[in-house]
Amino acid sequence: MNNILQVCFSAVRRMSTTGPVESTIFNKLQSALSASHVNVINESYMHNVPKGAETHFKVVVVSDKFDGLPLIKRHRLVNDILKEELQTGVHALSIVAKTPKQWEESDKIVESSPNCKGGFGK
């Protein structure tokens, strides 16, 4: 019984392990945008990549700096901050960029990205 619990526990821990790219993305977004909320979701497991890969991400960023900026400029800002990562292995980046007010007014539910259709790796 104890053993089973332990196995379960370590499985959960392994799943929630934060990879190096994931933490870099988190830190960069938080500091560059003085974000009040950052959530980095590694969606790589949904794609045809090795286990533990850090290729597909979704980020949720809430920052004052988005105030007055149209969507495309917010996305460009985030893309720019993560330029290095996007050039060195991060292959997909889905972005939710909101101002604190918009975040408060939203349901705060972030839908997961569409399923892969196998185009990666070509």
């Binding site: 997909a92 889905s94 990205s113 569409p114 399923n115 892969c116 259709k117 196998g118 185009g119 990666f120 070509k122």
Partner: peptide, 15 residues
């Protein structure tokens, strides 16, 4: 996009 409209090869393209 990745693929063609009748057979997209990426979920984002498909969307």
């Amino acid at each position: 996009m990745k693929g063609v409209p009748d057979a997209p090869r990426c979920g984002f393209s498909n969307a």
